[in-house]
Design a protein around this nucleic acid. Sequence first.
RNA 1: GGCGGCGUAGCUCAGUAGGUAAGAGCGCUCGACUCAUAAUCGAGAGGUCGACAGUUCAAAUCUGUCCGCCGCUACCA
Length: 545
Amino acid sequence: MTTPVLVAVAWPYASGSRHIGHLAGAYLPSDIFARQQRIIGNEVLMVSGSDVHGTPITVRADAEGVTPQDIVDRYHSEFLQQWDQLGISWDLYTTTGTSNHSEVTQQMFLSQLDKGHIDRRKSEQLFDEEAKRFLPDRYVEGTCPHCGSQDARGDQCDQCGKTYDAIELLDPRSKMSSSTPVLQETEHFYFRYSDFNQPLGSFLEAKQGWRNHVINFAMGWLREEGLLDRAITRDLDWGIKLPVDDLGEGKRIYVWYDAVIGYLSASKEWAESRGDPDRWKHWWHNPQARHVYFIGKDNIPFHVLFWPAQLMAVGKDIGGEELHLPDDVPANQYVTFKGGKASASRGVGMTIEEGLKRFQPDSLRYALAANFPEQADTEISIEEIARRVNDELVANWGNLVNRVISMTHKTCGGAVAKPGTYSEEDVSLLEFVDRSLEESAGLFESVELRSALRKGMEAAQAANRYLNATEPWKLSKTDPERAKTVLYVALSAINGIRVMLSPFLPFSSEKLNEFLGEPEGWQRIQLPVGLPIPKPEPLFEKVEI
RNA sequence: GGCGGCGUAGCUCAGUAGGUAAGAGCGCUCGACUCAUAAUCGAGAGGUCGACAGUUCAAAUCUGUCCGCCGCUACCA
């Protein structure tokens, strides 16, 4: 039975280059999971896109003297190119800048407004008169009201660690113009997240098998003070227009309300583009569907609390049925470099571009997958990646394929030879491979990708061990028939292992598919006798650093 | 400050409901092999499981305190 699986992937912010941490946190795990789900026959819809709204983009645009759209275009095209190079298999990678996304966002907004889950409130905010802009906390600095530190950030003091509201800052300064911001009243729409504390509690309590840090974090948040209502509009001219004009000009829907809506709007866009506009309902109006969200841990509140609340709040207003809530949110923790969180802006770690410059895509994918921060923050470095590539990927899997193909040419004339009767060790190896396939399938279900990868590598190791034990290079002289059987078994093992590794290593797997054929399900299939095997060619290059 | 997490072999990490003498991969040492990108295979060395105290017949696993590190703390998303 096939299951419709929505693979929902965090929307990268088109405000700058993304780094290896983002890759290991969301984009790679989602792709690996999606590829495996496709092989086992599930109906995968994998969507994401560039998040084009938000203050950092407008600030950057101002700083460079270009338009926000220029910034968005620059990074969106950079992302597209990198996804292509990395083999990220989106069904749709779009942006939040489409008219479709605006429409869906406005539709949700109106529904929630109509149901009373959105209301209007006035507040006083810091306003930069020079830049003519209301200032998010992050763009204000000043003197800490607690410890007197001179350069405290707008929402938290790095010196004493205390948090506060930006309007409490003594001697506030705008980071945009260095002028002194003034308090100005403004009115905004608020989403009444507090309406959903109870339903969210029930929703989360019913969840089984979620990662500890995800469920702990969400439950903790609810238990502490529950969700507070949050303003979902801003005084901006960059963002989705409001579908009502109650607040006058100069207001836009704010990014963190609309970005998560991208999962739904992208699903609709995908359905529209394939000429089947209602197809999205197969995932969103289907209780049998499975929605898996791939995000970094910084995104947990948005996907485990805010987004489900927003979905609940529309009821049956979109498409006539309730919208499917998240089934699993296997958020990854952080990849760290020299103990610190990766950050492109602070120059910690490596951008995706640098990673691709140094390593082949499959090599980078392997090394990161082997180090996915699924349980805890995981330390990584260029040396670690190179080590994983040279001492594991090349030495174990790459070498296995190479040595077997090479021997197939020397003793079987470059084609799969007819095997004789299997010995005990032959059967035992193939059973090991088949068992590994089963076990890795289970690990994929629980999104334990690191362990799933290990299963494949263990099988490759078993095959290497088998070769050392059977010594087909000697048999070819003493017992050619037996040598052919051994090589048949070894090729059969490879035929199973490559299925297991293919979600992780799409490019090199494609090379194997060229002669072994596309995987037919999550299993090892019978190798046809006489199948031509191409000349050996290393699957992966060793890297030097 | 509050909340969450982490601290296990040289490195990167697993350790499921406390219970056989603490695991894996890589590295290292020794040995085997030579088909293979000096790759592979075997054996071995290596840890008072951050510290201290407690619960228990029994704790890396539970409790408390402490030390160190990281993240979040709602206007970064």
